[in-house]
């Protein structure tokens, strides 16, 4: 090839080729980005990333299931008994220790909002079932308490609490 010439003037020619290659690589990366980014959630999906729920029709003791980002969310209007039971549990008894206070909003402890997906392998647990008066997952027997925390069974973690805010006393916005 042109190696005989290269020894005479290595730097100028090489710089040009290197510059061309680098610019080409930058161009290729810039061109690749839209191809990758198009798979990210599009604007219409992002627009549905938060859901508002009216709490007024949920009576005490009732659990409402809503859909948020394609997933079920349990909204539990807890009775005083359920709240007390949750608060009475010793943290050392919990496979995934977390106090009930950390899983609800202050002054709104009767409202428990958790994502209804078992942290084991993703099935939807059944409400008001199991030994802990919380949820029972029929797939592999995981059991959650009235704070949605894992108590027994193969699931490693408590039911996830999604980000949510109280827009008013009777309206929450999830996500």
């Amino acid at each position: 090839m042109a190696t005989t010439k290269a020894a005479e003037q290595p730097t100028r020619r090489d710089f040009l080729y290197i510059a061309t290659s680098v610019v080409g690589a930058v161009g290729a990366a810039a061109a690749a980005w839209p191809l990758i980014n198009q798979m990210n959630p599009d604007a219409s999906v992002l627009a549905l990333s938060s859901t508002e729920v009216d709490l007024s029709p949920i009576v005490e003791g009732q659990i409402l299931t809503v859909k948020w980002r394609g997933k079920p969310v349990f909204i539990s209007h807890r009775t005083k008994k359920e709240i007390d039971e949750a608060r009475a549990v010793k943290l050392s008894d919990l496979p995934d220790p977390q106090p009930d206070e950390a899983r609800v909003k202050k002054d709104k402890e009767q409202w428990l909002v958790v994502i209804g997906i078992c942290t084991h392998l993703g099935c939807v647990p059944l409400g008001h079932e199991g030994d802990y008066a919380g949820w029972f997952c029929p797939c592999h027997g995981s059991q959650y308490d009235t704070s949605g925390r894992i108590r027994k069974g193969p699931a490693p973690a408590n039911l996830e609490v999604p980000p949510y805010e109280f827009a008013s006393d009777t309206m929450i916005r999830i996500g």
Partner: peptide, 20 residues
């Protein structure tokens, strides 16, 4: 702008390669 710069570099590279 990018393509014009890149094209210029590619042209100079081509000229250099073929100069021999």
């Amino acid at each position: 702008i990018f393509l014009i710069v890149f094209g210029g570099l590619a042209y100079l590279s081509k000229k250099k390669v073929w100069a021999d």
